[in-house]
Design a protein around this nucleic acid. Structure first.
Lengths: 231, 231
DNA sequence: GGACAACGACCAGGATCCGCACGGCGTGCG
DNA sequence: CGCACGCCGTGCGGATCCTGGTCGTTGTCC
């Protein structure tokens, strides 16, 4: 990784989304610039200037797909990640042809950052992750979506998986419920953090029914912590 | 860290909150300026002038989020920390998008300062802390919320932990009860400082039951001091 | 040295908050 | 149509927080 982080251009006409993307990516150490329209993107995206472009598909002046086509035409070979609405099947089809990946709105920060890193990795910017998270006798393969405890496979739903993944990325640290909510749930979720309690309870049940000491600990008034019990 | 401390702009229309923030941050060695409205903030916050901006979300003239958006638009890339009401989900959503962090009202000064330092650290202004506090045979890990005395683990509740943390941040100094109250309890707490005596008593009991000399000493009429007894 | 006042330690009880389990409802998919 | 999954509301039980009071200790003044 370059010392300053890769340069990413975010292209979206909705300021809220553009800011959300920019902030999340800056937080992860990337250099981010924002363009508010397709035409603006075409002006600033000269060859070699960015390492990745995030393109909203739906924009009033120029469709994201069209922006991408013109970039390619003018010799800009930068990897592109599309942003599309969830049920827009057509977008998806077109997008996948040109795009290196796409993220559907509304997205969660975990999802967004994971996609960006994956694309940069394939493009050779980042060292390949182990793509395997481990703590104590827990093993998680992010790529294959599998989890084992002490060699025994554990089936998790998508949300359960993301919550556990977030905990595994911060082993031993006490993670506030609000932080889990912010990273795992998408930005349009309006409920409160009690949903996190529910999922922690699901995960605990599945982790512990295969024996072994409890790994997820409640720190009342603070959050949850993944750790091996003290004695 | 610059010799004079980082420059922070506090933006809040409520004088009480603005003064509270300014005083606490000045006490911590930052240079603080105050703006009483969103428009005022936009006028003074020129590129490079501040190292961090604290923005109240709810302001009569301009929403904090809008102020942030306009700052970004005009090329001011300063880190922003939002102040929001506790249950304001919508604020949180917007806040998380643009902000580097957010603090919910009512906050305690400990919490506030911790967030500010964390954001400045990520922005490269401050050296990373050890996140581990030590004095004599006491060890506290802030991240994992664990405390040991002479290697033996000690269980503290959330409030007990914050009080001891404050003492560990000021070892040997006699800390007035009112100061502990101001830093650990949030600013809307209406009780008096006798609550501190109660918590000191809880902590003493837990620290000393595992043997060893008493570490928290009462200085009558002044406050408490964390130190090893003289002989 | 003794009496008194101020201060602080500690306890006990009640109010509150928090964590958690359970069940229901809506939705998407086979 | 049935099932799996995600989301949300409710209610219980218990940990935690705070208050008020009592008792002991310290310092001060006579």
């Amino acid at each position: 990784m370059s010392p300053e982080g890769e340069r990413i251009l975010v292209v979206d006409d909705e300021p809220f989304i553009a800011d959300l993307l920019a902030a999340a990516l800056r937080f992860e150490g990337f250099q981010v610039e924002v363009a508010g329209s397709g035409r603006e993107a075409l002006q600033v995206a000269t060859p070699g200037r960015y390492d990745l472009v995030m393109l909203d598909v739906m924009m009033p002046d120029l469709e994201g797909t069209e922006v991408c086509r013109r970039l390619r035409e003018s010799g800009v070979a930068v990897p592109v990640v599309f942003l599309t609405a969830r049920d827009s099947t057509e977008d998806k089809v077109y997008g996948l042809g040109m795009a290196d990946d796409y993220v559907t709105k509304p997205f969660s920060l975990e999802e967004l950052v994971a996609r960006v890193r994956a694309v940069l990795r394939r493009a050779g910017y980042e060292s390949p992750d182990a793509a395997e998270l481990r703590y104590a006798d827990l093993v998680m393969s992010v790529d294959t979506h599998e989890v084992w405890r002490d060699g025994r496979s554990i089936e998790l739903t998508a949300t359960e998986f993301r919550v556990l993944q977030y905990l595994l990325e911060h082993p031993r640290r006490v993670v506030p419920k609000s932080e889990i909510l912010d990273h795992v749930w998408d930005y349009s979720f309006e409920g409160d953090a009690s949903i996190v309690e529910t999922y922690i309870s699901y995960i605990r049940k599945k982790l512990d029914e295969s024996g072994g000491p409890p790994l997820i600990h409640t720190v009342r008034g603070v959050g949850y912590s993944l750790r091996v019990p003290k004695e």
